[in-house]
Design a protein around this nucleic acid. Structure first.
Lengths: 218, 218
DNA sequence: GCGCAAACTTGCGTGCACGCAACTTTTTCC
DNA sequence: GGAAAAAGTTGCGTGCACGCAAGTTTGCGC
């Protein structure tokens, strides 16, 4: 009888996924990204290369997943848990900043190392867009009913937030320009994220106001 | 002596790029995306497969480029050409809607056909992010000087706009859900784009206001 | 328990992306 | 105009992504 964690099947799958992404990251850190073959990752996780490929579409995604796993759910959950009294902008910024800052700072050295590789850096930045769909759902829930117009609003806002996050992360991991002196110190990730997201606050507030008095309101 | 169009080298490169993307699109329409080999495209354009790959990183990108070529520059230019009296939000929305609507409607059948293919659809949607950098420059120019804070603002806003465009395009090319009745008619592309971008207007206006009285103002 | 259906794993084959190192073409400079 | 440099093209080799069709494991109803 399967517990809350799901059936045996599901647990095994999750274990395999975890083993794969952790093997990928470990090997990448040990030898450098370009010295890691797909076969090595699969071997280290105890599956065939073909199976590895059923879990991850590229080496880069496997490596990055070790650091970004389950971020989408955590962000969506964090937004849902924000007090209903908070404005949408405040709630979104709090949820996103808190869920991105802590793990990123914790894995700071790892991240700055692996994002030295262009392919991994791109995969890392693109991973931010994974929050789009869950975030859109959470925003739609805050905006009110699930009517069509609200759905579009929520999707646009979520996509905008994901973009802002991507810009902030890009600055954070930006490799120092070696030659010219015109360089941005980039500040802390929390600062970068907050400043980036603040640009979208007016849009979030306006959307919320436009939906005020809608179907469901606490 | 090279004319304004650039040297011979540059013209040849552009001709090759054009030949490749048009061959890719033509073949994809004739036979279906999955029946087009890279070798076919290269042959049709009169270059080696290896050279084809110096121009495009994937078949999907080559096909999509036939429809999206030079869009980035045109959008940036359109924004620069908006009257200086217009607000940033209005200027951006006008520029983006006008430059996206016309070509997309002109190639409507082509686009809806090729985006039936998942890989091509994804490449098409991702191509919208190509406007990010040129748009960020154009927005930064409108905001005023090139100080650091303004650069971040411009990048975030440009990324947001690109995201909104992506959401609108996604709805536009969304394949009709075959089974259930809960489906969105999606409206015209111009309407979709306008509605999506309108969500960001408050953010654009706020950024403009925050930069008012800055270094350069008409 | 038993057996069937659904889900997952695996090997194989194919086409692809791309680094690399020759080779060819365009540009530049005198 | 001719030689050197800069830029572009090509073939080759390698590793990779993924469709497909077995084979294997798990879940479920009886």
């Amino acid at each position: 009888m399967p517990s809350r964690t799901g059936g045996l099947r599901e647990r095994k799958k999750e274990a395999t996924r975890k083993a794969l992404r952790e093997a990928a990251l470990r090997l990448a850190l040990e030898r450098g990204v370009d010295q890691v073959r797909v076969e090595d990752i699969a071997d280290a996780a105890g599956v065939s290369p073909r199976t590895y490929n059923n879990y991850f579409a590229s080496r880069e995604q496997a490596i990055v997943a070790a650091v970004t796993a389950e971020r989408e759910q955590r962000v969506a959950e964090a937004l849902a848990n924000q007090p209903a009294t908070a404005g949408l902008a405040e709630a979104v910024i709090n949820a996103v900043v808190s869920e991105f800052t802590e793990p990123s700072e914790r894995h700071r050295d790892t991240l700055l190392t692996i994002t030295g590789h262009p392919g991994v850096r791109q995969a890392y930045l693109e991973s931010a867009t994974a929050i789009e769909a869950p975030l859109a759902n959470a925003i739609a829930a805050r905006l009110g009913g699930d009517e069509d117009t609200r759905r579009l609003k929520a999707e646009v806002l979520a996509a905008g937030v994901a973009s802002a996050v991507r810009v902030a992360l890009r600055r954070w991991v930006q490799p120092a320009a070696t030659s010219s002196a015109l360089m941005v110190p980039s500040g802390s990730l929390a600062t970068l994220l907050t400043e980036a997201l603040r640009q979208l606050a007016p849009a979030l507030e306006a959307a919320e106001d436009a939906c005020a008095g809608g179907s469901s309101e606490g």
